[in-house]
Computed example of a mutant assay.
Amino acid sequence: MAKHKIFTMSVASVYPHYVTKAEKKGRTKTEVDEIIRWLTGYSQEELQAQLEKQADFETFFAEAPQLNSSRALIKGVICGVRVEDIEEPTMQEIRYLDKLIDELAKGKAMEKILRR
Score class of each variant (00 low, 15 high):
Arg95Gly: 00
Lys29Gln: 15
Cys79Pro: 00
Ser43Val: 10
Ile101Val: 13
Phe60Glu: 03
Leu114Ala: 04
Thr40His: 06
Phe61Lys: 03
Leu104Ile: 01
Thr8Pro: 00
His17Met: 14
Arg37Glu: 09
Ala2Cys: 06
Pro65Gly: 07
Thr8Met: 14
Gly107Tyr: 09
Tyr18Gln: 02
Ile113Asn: 01
Glu87Gln: 12
Val81Leu: 10
Ile78Arg: 04
Glu46Ile: 03
Asp85Val: 07
Glu87Pro: 00
Ile35Leu: 04
Cys79Thr: 07
Phe57His: 06
Met9Ile: 13
Gln50Asn: 11
Met9Gln: 15
Glu46Phe: 01
Asn68Cys: 03
Thr8Leu: 14
Ala22Leu: 05
Leu104Tyr: 02
Glu46Arg: 08
Val11His: 03
Gly41Thr: 03
Thr59Asn: 09
Arg116Gly: 06
Leu97Lys: 03
Trp38Glu: 01
Lys3Met: 15
Arg71Glu: 06
Cys79Tyr: 06
Ser43Gly: 11
Lys106Ile: 02
Lys3Trp: 11
Gly107Ser: 09
Leu51Gln: 13
Glu111Cys: 04
Thr59Val: 13
Gly107Arg: 08
Lys99Gln: 08
Gly76Asp: 07
Lys25Asn: 13
Leu73Thr: 02
Gly107Leu: 12
Asp98Cys: 09
Val83Thr: 06
Thr8Asp: 15
Ile94Pro: 00
Trp38Cys: 02
Ile74Met: 03
Asp85Asn: 15
Ala49His: 06
Gln66His: 14
Ser13Asp: 15
Ile78Ala: 05
Glu63Met: 08
Ile74Trp: 00
Glu45Tyr: 07
Met9Arg: 14
Met91Tyr: 02
Ala12Met: 11
Lys21Gln: 12
Glu52Trp: 03
Ala109Trp: 08
Ala22Asn: 07
Asn68Met: 05
Tyr15Ser: 07
Thr30Ile: 09
Ala2Pro: 13
Leu67Ile: 15
Val11Cys: 06
Ile101Gln: 00
Ser13Asn: 14
Asp102Cys: 04
Val81Thr: 15
Ile36Asn: 01
Val14Asn: 07
Thr30Trp: 02
Ile101Asn: 00
Lys53Val: 09
His17Asp: 14
Ser69Thr: 10
Arg37Trp: 00
Ile35Cys: 01
Ser70Arg: 12
Glu88Val: 11
Phe7Ile: 08
Val11Glu: 01
Asp85Gly: 07
Thr8Glu: 15
Pro89Glu: 09
Arg27Trp: 05
Ala12Pro: 06
Gly41Pro: 04
Lys25Val: 02
Leu104Trp: 01
Ala109Pro: 07
Arg116Cys: 02
Leu114Thr: 04
Gly76Tyr: 10
Lys112Phe: 10
Thr30Pro: 00
Ile6Thr: 14
Asp56Thr: 14
Glu88Gly: 05
Glu23Trp: 01
Glu93Met: 04
Phe60Cys: 10
Ser10Arg: 10
Arg115Ile: 09
Met9Val: 14
Leu97Ile: 01
Gly80Gln: 05
Gly76Ile: 07
Phe7Gly: 01
Phe60Gln: 04
Glu63Thr: 13
Tyr96Val: 03
Lys24Pro: 00
Lys75Asn: 11
Ala64Met: 10
Met1Phe: 06
Gln54Asp: 14
Met1Asn: 10
Tyr42Thr: 06
